[in-house]
């Protein structure tokens, strides 16, 4: 039944010193649709691909079905994008909000972002060491601001967290990562608009052949002063999530891919294929 003797629960080391259950949890993150994060000297942004719940809701009821939530606001200075089990993400983001409020209440200061990320990483570590639990099945990209400017972190179910210049998680995120590795050195001096264009280009790499980014399947999270396309941005450039028509101007800045099919292929896409839906607990 199991793939090997050492992967049935999380309290067992393999002879090589590996933790297979933790590695499988990392696979759960890859089941979720992709998210991309990057930062400049002035801004940090998140971009995510929202999956349609086609697996559960027939497309004929399209108007009633919703795209899933990929981003959460934690505090004015922190936002996250997720890939993996949404319900696990809700538990963790709730905890992060509590930490943020606690810091405001006790010290009247915004919680330091690195500590917030470490706090959830420490929670995740416990779930890799004790029997009767499973590791979290969700990965985060966390953007935040502290005294030295915008930051970007990755959190993963293994209990590790790292700070990056740019990063991507979720389904086919390796393609986005390749894009980011090619361009990250220029991000520091980008304007917000340029940064988002880079982010969209990276996110586009995670799409399947016949898909395109549009106002319905893309979310953009921004931290920092307002873009030329934004009105009524919260004071101090607080975290906000853009969805729907508001992202149209950004999508227009994308440069068509040279090799990819920019215009939809003549033959209609097979309707049966399962999109990279985020995994549901029941599914």
């Amino acid at each position: 039944m199991f793939r090997n003797t050492y992967d049935s629960d999380n309290t067992v080391f393999s002879p090589q010193g590996r933790l297979h259950q933790v590695e499988y949890a990392l696979e759960a993150v890859k089941q979720g649709s992709a998210a991309v994060g990057l930062r400049s000297k002035t801004h940090a942004v998140l971009l995510a691909l929202k999956a349609w719940f086609a697996r559960f809701i027939p497309r004929s009821t399209g108007e009633l079905a919703s795209y899933q939530q990929k981003m959460f606001r934690i505090d004015d200075h922190v936002g996250i994008a997720i890939a993996g089990l949404t319900s696990d993400a809700r538990v963790l983001s709730n905890f992060m909000r509590q930490q943020a409020m606690g810091s405001k209440m006790v010290f009247n200061r915004p919680v330091p972002v690195n500590r917030l990320v470490s706090a959830i990483a420490d929670k995740a570590q416990v779930k890799t060491q004790e029997y009767g639990r499973r590791p979290y099945g969700v990965g985060f990209l966390v953007i935040g601001t502290d005294q030295s400017g915008p930051r970007l972190y990755e959190f993963s179910p293994s209990g590790n967290s790292y700070e990056y210049f740019a990063m991507s998680i979720g389904a086919r995120s390796q393609s986005a990562k390749t894009y980011l590795e090619k361009h990250y050195e220029s991000f520091a001096d980008c304007t917000l608009e340029q940064l988002i264009t880079h982010g969209l280009h990276a996110l586009r790499e995670t799409l399947q052949q016949d898909k395109e980014l549009n106002v319905n399947n893309t979310s953009i999270g921004i931290l920092g002063p307002a873009s030329v396309h934004e009105q009524s941005v919260p004071k101090g450039g607080a975290f906000r999530i853009l969805e729907g028509d508001t992202i149209e101007p950004y999508l227009k800045t994308m440069v068509p891919k040279e090799d990819g099919p920019v215009t939809a292929p003549a033959a209609a896409a097979p309707p049966t294929e399962a999109p990279a839906d985020d995994v549901e607990m029941s599914g």
């Binding site: 933790l19 470490s118 890799t128 060491q129 209990g159 590790n160």
Partner: peptide, 11 residues
């Protein structure tokens, strides 16, 4: 070793 275990031990 495992980085996350290291944080656990440090805490």
């Amino acid at each position: 070793g495992l980085l996350a275990d290291g944080r656990h031990m440090a805490n």
